[in-house]
Design a protein around this nucleic acid. Structure first.
Lengths: 244, 244
DNA sequence: CGCCCCTTTGAATCTAATCAAAAGCTGTGG
DNA sequence: CCACAGCTTTTGATTAGATTCAAAGGGGCG
């Protein structure tokens, strides 16, 4: 885990576009340091009091919950954050988290102290509603994950997860491409979808053979986005993106 | 759907104990009307703009998401609310919900207008953080539902759902009893756990034969709470209850 | 080089879904 | 009052989907 002074202003990327440009301009100076972690590193642990929050700038971060005591403890990824996401904004009101936060890939995050968040909010109460809304979109995404794990079969689950992740990565106007650096291992995808790593492998083969999308070395190449959305029965309303 | 003037003050029940007594005293007069719905009724529909929020006083309410177009559309319960829960407080910042809200049983709810919420918050900014936190506990519960559907087998899922629900119903000091009026049909439980109604029936028999708990006519009788929590691998930390 | 993790594939097993059918309960209308 | 419709509960039989076990190949890193 490396920390160092931030030198240049942060770009307003991904979900941060939910904030108006003037609001972003007020918040941005609060991010005073950058923090880097390597893949697999635990960024913060369940139950540990936090006095700052993290904005993901680069890489993928997961929220992980362990279930079961020591022997045969499984774990599950209950959320994945993409660049532009506030990783643990909910730590500001709650102070303590009920889950671990782990670096899935090498990541770079911007740090803002809760003290600083408070002073921005105190200056401008309307800010609170916007930050609150950001955490509510997170909650909507959580609901969708429960839905996905509860109603879909393996192929659809994986397709749906992919559809969500690339839609979120495209949020905020980045040109829609067909190639996405997810950098999740197959077991990671399994942990997120409630499937075994082995079965993810078979599902990926099926998606490849259907000329839908190809997942190689953490890179998702989408050949047929319409087919992907169809298999996934994907409807992005729950992401509360600007144009809907 | 019936509405009528509220006559007496509302008791501070269940999750509302997250608010301090003085805060509750300030919020309570905002609930000016009561609304009653019968089992199965859709209380509010996805996408419909809302100018008020609902506090559940009696009965069980579900948040439901439909997946799939018309033909063979399934649905899933992504949340269940028990008395004392704010059913759709998140409608205050978001204005529009991504899911339906349905009455599982006959229910009684107290209505508060968003206008009124805003005036309480404007008077006392600290209130915002408390309401925000309430929605964050909801989000933690959502995470746990994704975890449950993602990592647990049928028996454990049902046990875990039961453990969560009765813990939430006991929240805020009501004497811990051994009998709980959930009033969920077996298919309802299936919709919440991502299992078929038929399989729920078999799981309930197993729980009964293990002298763990008995579920008859919507009434959950817990014979052995320790056994239930053990089967469920239940750890209530994520509910952020006062004493933890 | 050797170790470890990820990927890939095959085979056997198991869990839960689906199909089917009967019995119990509730409320409605004749 | 009884008959009937509709829903929930219950059980059995069959099938489908995913897990687990096993084993081999690939790539990166110390």
């Amino acid at each position: 885990m490396l920390e160092f002074k931030k030198t240049a202003p942060l770009a307003q990327i991904g979900m941060m576009h939910q904030l108006s440009a003037p609001h972003w301009a007020q918040l941005e100076p609060g991010f005073t340091t950058l923090r880097e972690c390597t893949a697999g590193e635990v960024i913060s642990e369940r139950g540990q009091p936090l006095d700052h929050s993290l904005l993901l700038v680069d890489g993928i971060v997961g929220r992980r919950i362990k279930v079961g005591r020591k022997q045969g403890a499984r774990h599950h990824l209950v959320a994945l954050q993409v660049p532009g996401d506030f990783v643990d904004l909910h730590a500001y009101p709650l102070k303590v988290l009920d889950h671990d936060i782990v670096a899935i890939t090498d990541v770079q995050m911007a740090v803002i102290s809760h003290e600083r968040v408070k002073s921005v909010i105190d200056d401008q109460p309307e800010f609170t509603r916007q930050l609150w809304s950001l955490t509510l979109v997170d909650a909507a995404i959580h609901r969708h994950w429960a839905l996905r794990n509860g109603t879909m079969r393996a192929l659809q689950r994986v397709a749906n997860l992919f559809a969500e992740l690339i839609t979120r990565m495209d949020a905020g106007g980045a040109a829609v491409t067909s190639s996405y650096a997810l950098n999740l291992s197959q077991p990671h995808i399994g942990d997120a979808c409630g499937l075994s790593g082995v079965h993810i492998n078979r599902v990926l083969r099926t998606l490849r053979e259907a000329n839908c999308c190809t997942y190689v070395k953490g890179e998702l190449v989408v050949q047929d986005r319409a087919a992907l959305n169809l298999i996934a029965e994907f409807d992005p309303d729950y992401l509360y993106l600007p144009g809907s």
